[in-house]
Structures are given as structure tokens and as C-alpha cells.
């Protein structure tokens, strides 16, 4: 439960008079319980791809299937963890975690109290249960947000730069925390990040995307043993993978920039001729 199949998906955004092609002919298969990370330069369509799977956007062409059925809007089978933590400021930590379970759509997913209790324990937030989100640290907030999504027990977790706003130390602690949760209760995970170390450390498979238009350029199997340990980051295998991914991402990012020292920057020319034609 939780396999994702993206087939020949393109996504265009109509913004005024210019159309932006955010994704073009993207194919991606994610197996049930696989941990996939997406990396790529800013603006290459990572969030767009995630939003298509989540059901917040619809593809311009192609189709997105989850467990073989086309995606029709967002639903509790695909839990989304947003970069901007989605906690209701008027609810306490405890009430936020219980929110999803108290909805009609999630009746029958079990008794609310024990589930909330277990998640408070697991996320180390039991002592802060009656606090409001504004009274928590960034890391605590993101833990609460993850707990509130896990409460409805989705078969798939979609995470858009979930730790992007955290400092390096908190971030690495949160990565281990996420892996620990995932080891205990495996789910399909698609996680967007721009941190290459994070992408490799967490993943079974890292997908590298390129921009303009957004495409999948390479998929790299991460054959590091599980469970992952922090020390693995300095292993030869990890460093080899990281250098490989970094090289591709950098090369792709540099394609979009002008060569150094060129007098009339060719990158500027197309846009200038374009505006002259208008």
C-alpha cells in the first residue's frame, strides 16, 4: 500500500502571457515502503512533482497513480509534511496531533487518545503537550507537525524540505528521528531536499532533477546498509555517492549560467531578443 507511479507527466503553469513548463515528460516509479529523495537546483520542479502526487495540483498531461488508482485531490492516504510547519496556532501540541484523527474521514483508524499518547512519547513532546506551537522551538514544531501527519497513519509520506529551516545540528537529529520512525513503521516516503548529504543519508534511492524544463536526470541507488548511523557519513561509500551526486547537480546548475569572462553574456541575449520582438 503506497506505491507511486508517475507516467509521462508534464505540468505547465499559465502565468499571464508566458507559460512556465515546470515538469516535462517525467516518469517515476516508487515502490511500496521505499524511501526516495529528490534533489535538484532551485526551481527545477521538485515541489511541483510532490504537489502532483499529493493531489494539490493536476498534471497538464500524463497521469499520477497511487496504488494503481489515479490521484484525485489530496487525501489522508498521502500525508504531507510542509516546509512551513502546518500546525494550528490555536490548538495545543496534543490537539494538533489529534486533529486529523478527529475528522470524519479518519473515523475507525483507532482510538484517538492512545495514538496521540504514543506519538507524544515517540516525538519527545509529552512534556509540552499543552503548549501552543508559538511556544515551541523550530525542531519541536517540526516534530509535532510530523506527529500530526503520522497520527492518521498514511501509507505514503510526502515531505517538502521538512528540515530546511532548521540549523545543521537539529537537522541531523531530525534525520535520525525520521529514520527511526520509518524503521519502526515502514512507509513509502518521498522527501524533497537541497541538502545532498541528507538526500543520500536517508534514501534507498536519490532522484536528481534538472531545470528548464524540469526533468529527472538520474536515479541513484543508495546501497548503504540499514539502519543508517551517523558515522556512515564519513565512510568511503557515502563520500563516493555524495561526490557523484554533487557533481551531477553542480554540472546541471552550471549549464544555466553564463561562461565566465564572456563579453556579451549569451545568457542575457535570448531574453533581450525576446523583449525586442515583443
Amino acid at each position: 500500500m503506497g506505491s507511486i507511479s508517475v507516467r509521462a507527466v508534464s505540468k505547465r503553469f499559465e502565468t499571464g502571457d508566458v507559460d512556465v513548463t515546470a515538469l516535462e515528460a517525467v516518469d517515476l516509479q516508487v515502490r511500496d515502503q521505499e524511501f526516495v529523495t529528490l534533489v535538484g537546483a532551485s526551481g527545477c520542479g521538485k515541489s511541483t512533482l510532490l504537489n502532483l502526487v499529493a493531489g494539490f495540483e493536476t498534471p497538464s498531461s500524463g497521469e499520477v497513480l497511487v496504488d494503481g488508482a489515479p490521484v484525485r485531490g489530496p487525501g489522508p492516504d498521502r500525508g504531507v509534511v510542509f516546509q512551513q510547519t502546518a500546525l494550528f496556532p490555536w490548538l495545543t501540541v496534543e490537539e494538533n496531533i489529534a486533529f486529523g484523527l478527529s475528522l470524519r474521514a479518519n473515523r475507525g483508524k483507532g482510538e484517538v487518545k492512545p495514538i496521540v499518547e504514543r506519538l507524544l512519547e515517540r516525538t519527545g513532546l509529552a512534556a509540552f503537550r499543552t503548549r501552543r506551537p508559538a511556544e515551541l522551538s523550530g525542531g519541536m514544531r517540526q516534530r509535532a507537525a510530523i506527529a500530526s501527519v503520522l497520527a492518521i497513519d498514511p501509507s505514503t509520506l510526502l515531505m517538502d524540505e521538512p528540515f530546511g529551516a532548521l540549523d545543521a545540528l537539529t537537522r541531523s537529529i531530525m534525520q535520525d528521528f525520521l529514520l527511526e520512525l520509518w524503521e519502526a513503521r515502514r512507509k513509502t516516503v518521498v522527501l524533497v531536499t537541497h541538502d545532498i548529504d541528507e538526500a543520500i543519508y536517508l534514501a534507498d534511492r536519490t532522484i536528481i532533477m534538472t531545470a528548464h524544463p524540469g526533468r529527472i536526470c538520474e536515479a541513484i541507488e543508495v546501497d548503504l546498509p540499514r539502519p543508517r548511523r551517523y558515522e556512515m557519513r564519513s565512510s568511503a561509500a557515502f563520500i563516493r555517492l555524495r561526490d557523484h551526486v554533487t557533481q551531477i547537480v553542480r554540472a546541471e546548475a552550471l549549464k544555466g549560467t553564463a561562461p565566465l569572462g564572456a563579453p556579451a553574456s549569451p545568457a542575457l541575449v535570448p531574453s533581450m531578443t525576446q523583449s525586442a520582438q515583443n
Partner: peptide
């Protein structure tokens, strides 16, 4: 109202009334 909160509630399965 923060659009992310609205999206989060819809993602969790909230209906119009909720």
C-alpha cells in the same frame, strides 16, 4: 488564513463543514 493550514486540513481529509 495561512494557506498551508488549509491544505494540511484538506490533506488529512477534512470535509467542507470541518
Amino acid at each position: 488564513i495561512n494557506i498551508t493550514l488549509y491544505k494540511a486540513a484538506r490533506m488529512m481529509g477534512a470535509n467542507e463543514r470541518e
